[in-house]
Structure formats: C-alpha cells, structure tokens
C-alpha cells in the first residue's frame, strides 16, 4: 500500500508544477500586451510633459531636430488617412469581389487552386511590396500622369496606397470568403426559388447576412493599413504635408516613428519621444478597430452557431 501512496503524492506534485508552468506561460501573453501598452504609454507621457498634447493633436507644423522644434501631428494624420483611403478603395472592391467569386461562382477545383495563390500574396514580406512600390509602381505613376502634363511626385501617396491596397486584398478576401460560405445554403435556395437571379441573391440575401463578418474583415484590413510600415517607409515621403492631392508626397505615422528612432539620437529628447506619442495614437486606434471587429465576428458566429471561424 505504501509505495502506491508515495507514487501518487509524487505525481500530484508533478501535476501542480506542470499546471503552474502552463499558467505562467499564459500570463506571459497577457504581460506582452500590457508590456506594449505601458512601454509606449510611459514614454509618451514623458513626451507630453515636455510638449502640449493639444498642439500635438491639432497643430499643423511638424519640425523635429531644430532648436525651436514643433510637434503638430495633423499633417501626419492626414497623410496616413489619405494613403489608407486609397489602399481601402483598392482592397475593398477587389478583395470582396474575389471572395464572392471564390465562394459563390468558382468550382471546387478552381477554388482549391486559386485560394493558395491568394495566400501567397498574403505571405509576401512587406519590405518586398515596398521595393516594388518604390522601383516599379512610383515611376510608372509619374510617367503615366506625365503623359497628361500632370506633375506627380516620385514619393506620391498614390503609389504606396495602391500597393498597400494590393497587400490587404488577401486579408479582406480570406475572412470574407469564410463568412460568405458560412451563410446557410437554405437562404440562397429560397431566394433562387423565388426567381431571383444569382447576382440578386448574392447582393440582397447573402451579403446582408454576411455583413457583420465583411465589416469585421474591412476593419481588420483598415487597422493593417494604418499600421503598415515598410511600404510607406520605402515609397512614401518624409515631409509632413497637409494636402488632398494624392500625387504629392505625404508621410504617415509609421514613417515618422521609424524616422525618429533610426540613427543615434539622444533617447530622452522630444525628437525621439515623439515616436512613442505617435505610437500611442496608433495603438489606441488599431486597438479600437480590432475590438469592434472581434465583437462583430463573435455576433455573427452566435447568429449562425458556427464554431470554426
């Protein structure tokens, strides 16, 4: 009897140790998120102790590195906004169109072969897209508009926006495809039986049913566009530019973060810390987008009782 008891107590201890290890691993994942938040937050607070928060949000002049440096981030936000709009206007129709084709029209054979190709698009590193935008797309845009006598910058917002849009296509198409396929087939059949054409069924039955998922995919794409770095670092400009003209050079939040932290600056100077202030804004905005996106997709799952998405 005794050896049996001994063994049992021993394995009980082992069980506890393993359980403890597993819990601490899970804690690390939480710590990471808070680590990102706090590491950015503390440095950003330090920045806002030196400079006014109000001017940072509404000021129109961004001139770091000089004695009378100013940190008004409005032109940076506007550049980010315009490039994101361009990217989304490329990615949304094409991504959604691709998703509809894959889920509604394509034969299983086509689907099996086209989907991996789209996934390759998602697997290409962003630095490669950046090189492509800077070397191939930007000169092509300058040349194209030159034909009409319109001047375009080699660092135009259009070039980086379009390439960024192509990068986001698979983000939108893959999630939308899953969501559209999750809409029950009975809905489609009922609509077709009432004499609707295929496209009418898709537009008025399938898409509205899948809408929460599609919006969720769009928001995810949007947060990806806002946080994208390499494409804009390589193809967009450095100059904060408050303008609506997509052919001019513009800069984005991520570009300024990289610019402030590359090179040997004093770490505790406002020049460097401004990167953390911009990072904080980026963190908050993307976090809000993600939370909305996640709650939408959860509602969709509950509505159709899906566990696989």
């Amino acid at each position: 009897m005794r050896p049996f008891e001994l063994k049992k107590r021993h394995s009980g201890l082992k069980e506890k140790v393993i359980r403890f290890l597993l819990v601490s691993a899970a804690v690390v994942s939480i710590l990471t998120t808070f680590g990102v938040l706090f590491s950015i937050l503390f440095e950003a607070i330090e920045f806002f102790q030196m400079r006014s928060f109000w001017y940072f949000i509404t000021g129109t002049e961004w001139s770091p590195g000089v004695t009378d440096s100013k940190f008004g981030a409005l032109p940076i936000f506007s550049g980010t906004f315009i490039i994101t709009i361009i990217a989304m206007s490329v990615a949304l129709p094409i991504g959604l169109g691709s998703a509809i084709f894959l889920s509604e029209y394509a034969s299983p054979f086509m689907r099996d072969h086209l989907k991996p190709l789209l996934e390759i698009l998602a697997g290409i590193p962003t630095v490669v897209y950046g090189f492509f935008a800077a070397i191939t797309v930007a000169p092509a845009i300058v040349h194209f508009f030159g034909l009409f006598g319109i001047h375009a910058s080699f660092n135009s917002a259009l070039a980086s926006g379009v390439v960024m849009g192509i990068m986001i296509i698979p983000v939108i198409s893959s999630l939308s495809d899953d969501v559209i396929r999750a809409v029950p087939d009975s809905q489609r059949k009922a609509s077709l039986a009432l004499g609707m054409t295929t496209s009418e069924t898709i537009k008025s039955i399938v898409i509205p049913s899948a809408l929460p998922g599609i919006i969720s995919a769009t928001l995810l794409g949007l947060s990806k566009a806002l946080g994208e770095t390499m494409i804009v670092v390589m193809a967009a400009g450095l100059r904060p530019n408050l303008s609506w003209n997509a052919l001019e050079d513009m800069t984005t939040v991520t570009v300024r973060i990289v610019d402030a932290l590359v090179g040997d600056h004093e770490f505790n100077s406002p020049d460097t810390l401004s990167a953390f202030a911009l990072g904080l804004i980026l963190f908050v905005v993307t976090l809000v987008l993600n939370v909305i996106s996640l709650s939408l997709i959860r509602k969709f799952k509950e509505k159709y009782k899906i566990n696989t998405l």
């Binding site: 990471t32 998120t33 990102v36 947060s223 932290l261 993600n290």
Partner: peptide, 20 residues
C-alpha cells in the same frame, strides 16, 4: 488578449523591444 496581440501593428513591437 491573444486576439488583440495578433492584430497590433508590428512596428509597435519594435517600440516595446526598444523601450524594454
């Protein structure tokens, strides 16, 4: 947390690496 972690822009991890 994990879902949010997956969607944080990669550049912010760089800020974490630098600061921490």
């Amino acid at each position: 947390n994990i879902n949010n972690l997956a969607a944080i822009p990669s550049i912010l991890f760089g800020l974490l690496g630098l600061a921490v």
